[in-house]
Design a protein around this nucleic acid. Sequence first.
DNA 1: TATATCTGCGCG
DNA 2: AAAGCGCGCAGATATA
Length: 596
Amino acid sequence: MSLAPPSPWCVVGSAKADEPRGAVRVIDVAADGSRSEPVTFAPAEFAQFVAAREREASRRWVWHDTAARYPALLDAGVRVERCYDLRLCHQILATSAYISQAEALREASEWVVAADSAEAPQQSDSPTLFDIEARSRHRTAPPTLEAALDEFDRQRLAIAASHHPARLSLLLSAESAGALIAAELTHAGVPWDEAEHHRILRESLGPKPPLGTKPARMQSLGAEIREALGDPHANIDSPPKLLRSLRAAGIEVSSTSKWELAEHAHPAVDLLLEYKKMARLFTANGWAWLDEWVRDGRYRPTYVPGGVVTGRWASSGGGALQIPRQLRPALCADPGWLLVSADVSQLEPRVLAAMSGDRAMAAAGHGKDLYAGIVESGAVPSRQDAKIAVLGAMYGSTTGDAGRLVPRLRRAFPKAMRLVDQAAAVGEQGGQVTTWLGRSSPLPAEDWLALQSAASLPEASRRDEELARRTAREFGRFTRNFVVQGTAAEWALAWLAELRIRLSAFEAVPESNEPGSGFGRADSVRAPASGPVFSSRPHLAFFLHDEVIVHTPAAHAEAVARAIEESAARAGALLFGEAPVDFRLDVRISERALKE
DNA sequence: TATATCTGCGCG
DNA sequence: AAAGCGCGCAGATATA
């Protein structure tokens, strides 16, 4: 495991009260801790200063919140190579079990305030691009330079005194790189073919309905459903009312969810399932979504790095993490450009094999589909069984097919299973577990603890005991999954960070859409802007837990595909050294991000 | 009338 | 009611 070479830091804070509003104060901190005199910049000058510094030499920008500082730099055409996000790093360090004395960090409670809880003021009118930007940029007030320096010192001391400074440093670098990437993803946007999206909507839902009404096809389908149920007043959009109508029609369901409905043969059921599919598309990703989230051929969601306790990213607004497969064809490269899509095969079980040092499990996935390898090992008869067993092992299933299959896995891969079983045992006792690089799980809430201690008293009822046991097992399943999901998120961050560095080395290509280039659109309008920083070079366009999509000038596509592969190998080595686990990718080069 | 909670379904 | 983890969002319903 290697650390980044010692390099000067450039700590950034807000100006003092007597200086102009929005001004930025900056100070250099050398590797030996010595500091320069602080300098103050007006916001526009700050971008120029950063650009000049980035041209000189590698530096790490230390600031309170990348999401608050970086978008304006990108808009000014300035890209930053490395940063250290004090807020995200605080979030990790203040709870990490690798930190021996976290008191000083926890006392600096102003750093705990989650920026994502700071919602932008509600806009009642239909949102504009400005609103979208305002939403993603609204943050709590930045700390002064002195406060930033104090926090930076606290964090550096805590890391140096920790049990695993190298792992933590890697995690904090990856987390901070992730924050840069999230801002860059929003800046670049996902290339989105609005015409294709419209075509999909029209094909599934018919013509766009007038504002405030449902598509005609949904309305007529609704009428057919009411007919089939023999209930002219059935309200299909209200689950409780629909449930009553279904039961009145003799369909014995306990909810209106589709997986339960699908088990009943009734003319109304097929129609209803079709209606639900349409309703989902219409409300979640219909014409309204397109109006709100896609501008000039770019979909710009807001990502929230570190937004999930496990370290995964969350998103806020635009539903970036739930783009339905149905809409994947709308994710489409610009003319003359291509998409390089890559997803990791069975990321979480491979991570589990690596972190547990389970050589048998690593071997099962070596050079092939991990589930196929498990079948070959003889542990289970079919690929489907292998998949159910592995997911069941990581999620803590105890019943059904999974409950039957997991014990076989326990025999075949004892080291891997011991790791997740122990994580579950810790959680059931209200304890804390930690990922490979050092992100620790939150402790259970007070009412959870109260429930457990109440159930252990002699006067506790059977119901109390039962409830306590159930919630204990629930928390155990959470910690069981935390170590795997969290470490997988760390691998993915390392992968992204490596890839970002490799992509930045690509030469910019001439604007491919200029008239006469041969790629110009019929209307010869300029290419939809990927933002000033990325309009002429390969850039990350999409990231979803174990999948990335790079948008690249066609000439670079093959090299980008290799860069993605190399980055995956490098991420594996960074986290796990020479552990014999390979992280296999499925890489595709195409115009459209189709998914089988 | 505004806000909180629940249901259902999309993604990994 | 997903048997089993982690999310966000829309719409309906419950609550203040």
